[in-house]
Nucleic acid binder design. Structure first.
Length: 287
DNA sequence: TTCTTTGTTCCGGA
DNA sequence: GTCCGGAACAAAGA
């Protein structure tokens, strides 16, 4: 499940390997992703040069001269890059190499540096959509996103303002993409453990010191995970097929009945369901 | 067969 | 009207 750190790792690899390359050909094995690929998807991309690649929340954006490609990996979306073995960058060699491809590869991009970018998605909850550049600021997906958690826009004033009158619990609030964009279930569980805040705590009951701790933990945990190459639970791999290692550092996620990892605490990790999502917390030190 | 997973949307209750 | 949480949905594998 790619969350923000995983998407950041993928974006950095893509930038390093294919930024400034031109798309020579596109082949679609299955156009039915979360949204069906537009019938002109191939035609619209052939000949376009990738001018930049960026990340916003859990979206990856490819920029072209007059358009941009918005990508969300959903639950199981991932990218692979394969080097085309022979040096003939013809459509024939492109298709020939497709024979090596594994199940659930849906979209293939042949680039003029001899690399093939492959989008693979088992569950097909991810999507790709092309838009004109004039839509960059008005795009319906981008427009509703809250602040980037690693930016200075996430600060005490913003946090306090958004939560001060909220009766909803802090777990759901942190998962709300219109508040902070890019926090998913795994990281929110870890963030709440680090701050010793119970997931069902009402936002309006948070003290200023709690808010400071939350902001600190959000940045700390995301940055640390990026440093470790993201978390590989289920089947996350970066585009070279390498696994991240942040999952080794999970304190609570999927740790039901484990002892609390705080040396001074004798509590056990509990599991409850909040809004249909598994939540893990220490029954003793998260009040 | 049923359960699990995430992000989003829809709906009903407060 | 607004806020909030629960249910449903997408697809595939265990």
């Amino acid at each position: 499940m790619p969350e923000l750190p995983e998407v950041e790792i993928i974006k950095r690899s893509l930038f390093r390997m294919i930024n400034k390359e031109k798309i020579i050909d596109v082949r679609i094995s299955n156009k039915k992703l979360r949204y069906k690929l537009h019938s002109s998807f191939i035609k619209d991309l052939i000949g376009e040069k990738i001018l930049n690649i960026s990340r916003r929340s859990k979206y990856i954006i490819f920029y072209f001269k007059n358009k941009f490609l918005l990508i969300h990996l959903g639950m199981t979306g991932k990218f692979f890059i394969k080097r085309i073995k022979d040096n003939k960058l013809t459509k024939t060699s492109f298709y020939y190499n497709l024979n090596f491809i594994r199940k659930h590869n849906h979209v293939h991009f042949l680039l003029n540096n001899g690399l093939m970018l492959i989008y693979n998605d088992v569950r097909r909850f991810g999507f790709m959509k092309l838009y004109k550049n004039s839509e960059l600021k008005t795009n319906s997906f981008i427009k509703k996103l809250g602040v980037e958690p690693l930016s200075n826009n996430l600060n005490i004033n913003y946090f306090r303002q958004f939560t001060i009158k909220k009766k909803r619990n802090i777990k759901n609030t942190l998962m709300d993409q219109t508040f902070i964009s890019g926090l998913g279930n795994i990281y929110v569980n870890e963030i709440l453990f680090m701050t010793k805040i119970h997931p069902l705590t009402k936002c309006s009951n948070l003290k200023n010191s709690d808010i400071s701790k939350l902001i600190f933990s959000i940045k700390k945990i995301l940055n640390f995970s990026i440093l470790k190459g993201g978390s590989s639970i289920k089947d996350f791999e970066n585009i070279s097929g390498k696994k991240g290692s942040f999952q080794q550092f999970f304190a609570v996620y999927n740790k039901e009945n484990s002892n609390c990892s705080r040396i001074s605490c004798t509590g056990k990790i509990k599991k409850i369901i909040i809004s249909n999502r598994s939540s893990f917390y220490c029954g003793k030190c998260q009040k």
